[in-house]
Amino acid sequence: MFEAKLQQGGLLKKILESVKDLVVDGLWDCDGAAITLQGMDSSHVALVEMLLRAEAFEHYRCDRNVTLGMNHNHLSKILKCANNDDIVILKAADQNPDSCSLILESKNGEKTSDFVVSLVRIDTDQLGIPETEYSAHVKMSSGEFQRICRDLSQFGDAVQITCSKQDVKFSSSGETGKANITLTHSATVDKEEESVTVDLKEPVDLTFALRFLNLFTKATPISDTVTLSLSQEAPLVVEYKIGDSGHIRYFLAPKIQE
């Protein structure tokens, strides 16, 4: 039997909003320690990896490892019926389940909704992502990053990100013209979610499709801050922490000059 009870249903709503437009359906691997999801967009250019540890749940029981093939649009429809402060319970049999139950309990306990969603058979490709030493880590406000990606999308379909010791520059150009946004490394880190910290081992200069970055920033409500990890010879990693009990990580392969 797999059963997980989340005190704050709003978190699951935000997680679905973060993945459903990038990955239509995905395999939710549940084991004794955590629920993990890894999925790629149809063009295999971007990947999302979600991890939610058992400690995020008020009650978590997973007698045997079970993989739930979830259609994220169906799951999202159910979660649209949940309030942020509803308790959400996920339940599934642990022997090749063909469905998953979701129970929503209102905070005052007066309203209980239960849904059964059919699981889907997915033969998705999983990628092995090696531990990587990145040349640069940029930690910044998630709202600021979302704003930069949205603003630069008006000028071009790609953003060039260049990191130096002092700052990180986001540039885009197209027929409208050219736009540069430069964030300077904050000297004092008083309010974490408003400061920009650049941890640089060596300079990087990479270009990425804004279409995907604007899909990644759907995770903005999950965390006040976002961390970008960059290396010349590796995909970009955009990470949003889920409190201290998990994360959503997006990976995006760069565009290169032909």
Partner: peptide
């Protein structure tokens, strides 16, 4: 002109 690379250029399929 910029060309989009795929993730499989960097990571192996399991």
């Amino acid at each position: 002109k910029q060309q989009q690379i795929g993730l499989s250029h960097y990571y192996d399929f399991l």
